[in-house]
Simulated assay, not measured.
Amino acid sequence: MLAMQYSFTLPADYDMTIIERRIADNGHLLDGYPGLIFKTYLYAIQNDGLTASDENLYAPFYLWQDAASLNSFLLSPGFAAVSRAFGRPEVKIYPVLSVALSPDIRQAKFACRKIEPIRPYSSLSSLGEPVKIGEELARLVAWDPQNWQLIGLSLWKILPQEVASTSQNYQIGHISLPKN
């Protein structure tokens, strides 16, 4: 599995209802996309009181079954449209170490992404230990072996304050999942 995220930082005076409307109009287009485990349409509104974000962001986060599925999307007309609208982003791709998904993942309204450095010369053997979910509806741990970082993503129905203060937080406009 591979995690993927790109992010657009938008001006402070950007009308974020444009992003919300774009997600509402187009989010369903990736529902059932081959090889997609999930896509969260993430956004944060500067100083909105919900995500404690310092910036306006549009930052979708994907979980792919494999590289072929990820490549299929990046080479697609859908990604070309995003690039035309906002510019071609730096796409970050991470091998996934562990993931746990609740059957109620559709109920998630918030996401928390935390990036932590991997200590130099620390043992890497424990990085792949399975994650478990408690109150969160999904939890994923991936890593960036180029920059020696762990990337954690958790999805929540209600954003817990103790988690929110230590991560980049987003609202979820839509979650695309496989068709059943």
Rank of each mutant, 00 (worst) to 15 (best):
residue 1 M to V: 04
residue 3 A to N: 04
residue 3 A to I: 03
residue 5 Q to M: 08
residue 5 Q to A: 07
residue 6 Y to K: 00
residue 6 Y to S: 05
residue 9 T to S: 02
residue 9 T to Y: 03
residue 9 T to W: 05
residue 10 L to H: 01
residue 14 Y to H: 07
residue 15 D to G: 05
residue 15 D to T: 00
residue 18 I to K: 13
residue 19 I to M: 04
residue 20 E to V: 00
residue 21 R to T: 03
residue 23 I to T: 05
residue 24 A to M: 05
residue 24 A to F: 03
residue 25 D to A: 01
residue 26 N to L: 08
residue 27 G to S: 06
residue 27 G to E: 08
residue 28 H to E: 00
residue 30 L to M: 06
residue 32 G to R: 02
residue 33 Y to D: 09
residue 34 P to A: 10
residue 36 L to M: 04
residue 37 I to S: 03
residue 37 I to E: 08
residue 38 F to G: 09
residue 38 F to W: 12
residue 39 K to C: 01
residue 39 K to Q: 02
residue 41 Y to P: 04
residue 43 Y to V: 01
residue 45 I to M: 04
residue 45 I to R: 07
residue 47 N to P: 08
residue 47 N to S: 07
residue 47 N to R: 06
residue 49 G to N: 02
residue 53 S to D: 10
residue 54 D to Q: 14
residue 55 E to G: 06
residue 62 Y to A: 01
residue 62 Y to E: 05
residue 62 Y to D: 07
residue 63 L to A: 06
residue 63 L to W: 06
residue 64 W to G: 02
residue 65 Q to M: 07
residue 67 A to V: 14
residue 67 A to Y: 12
residue 68 A to V: 06
residue 70 L to E: 06
residue 71 N to D: 11
residue 73 F to V: 07
residue 73 F to M: 03
residue 77 P to G: 09
residue 77 P to V: 04
residue 78 G to A: 15
residue 80 A to L: 07
residue 80 A to Q: 04
residue 82 V to D: 07
residue 82 V to K: 05
residue 82 V to L: 03
residue 83 S to G: 02
residue 86 F to H: 14
residue 87 G to Q: 10
residue 87 G to M: 11
residue 87 G to P: 11
residue 93 I to P: 11
residue 97 L to R: 13
residue 97 L to Y: 12
residue 98 S to M: 10
residue 101 L to G: 12
residue 102 S to K: 00
residue 102 S to A: 05
residue 103 P to C: 03
residue 104 D to G: 12
residue 104 D to Y: 12
residue 104 D to S: 14
residue 105 I to F: 09
residue 105 I to C: 08
residue 106 R to D: 14
residue 106 R to C: 13
residue 107 Q to D: 13
residue 108 A to W: 02
residue 109 K to Q: 15
residue 109 K to C: 12
residue 111 A to H: 04
residue 113 R to C: 13
residue 115 I to G: 11
residue 116 E to Q: 15
residue 117 P to T: 08
residue 118 I to L: 08
residue 121 Y to C: 06
residue 124 L to T: 11
residue 127 L to H: 10
residue 128 G to V: 05
residue 131 V to L: 15
residue 131 V to N: 12
residue 132 K to A: 14
residue 133 I to L: 11
residue 135 E to H: 12
residue 136 E to F: 00
residue 136 E to T: 03
residue 137 L to I: 05
residue 138 A to S: 13
residue 138 A to R: 05
residue 140 L to R: 15
residue 140 L to V: 15
residue 142 A to E: 01
residue 143 W to G: 08
residue 143 W to V: 10
residue 144 D to M: 01
residue 145 P to R: 09
residue 145 P to E: 04
residue 146 Q to N: 10
residue 148 W to V: 04
residue 149 Q to M: 09
residue 150 L to A: 11
residue 151 I to T: 14
residue 151 I to F: 14
residue 151 I to V: 15
residue 153 L to Y: 11
residue 154 S to G: 11
residue 154 S to H: 04
residue 155 L to E: 15
residue 156 W to H: 11
residue 158 I to R: 11
residue 160 P to Q: 11
residue 162 E to C: 00
residue 162 E to K: 13
residue 164 A to W: 00
residue 164 A to K: 02
residue 164 A to I: 06
residue 165 S to L: 09
residue 166 T to V: 13
residue 168 Q to R: 09
residue 170 Y to M: 06
residue 171 Q to P: 02
residue 175 I to S: 13
residue 175 I to F: 12
residue 176 S to P: 12
residue 177 L to G: 10
residue 177 L to M: 12
residue 178 P to H: 12
residue 179 K to R: 15
residue 180 N to G: 14
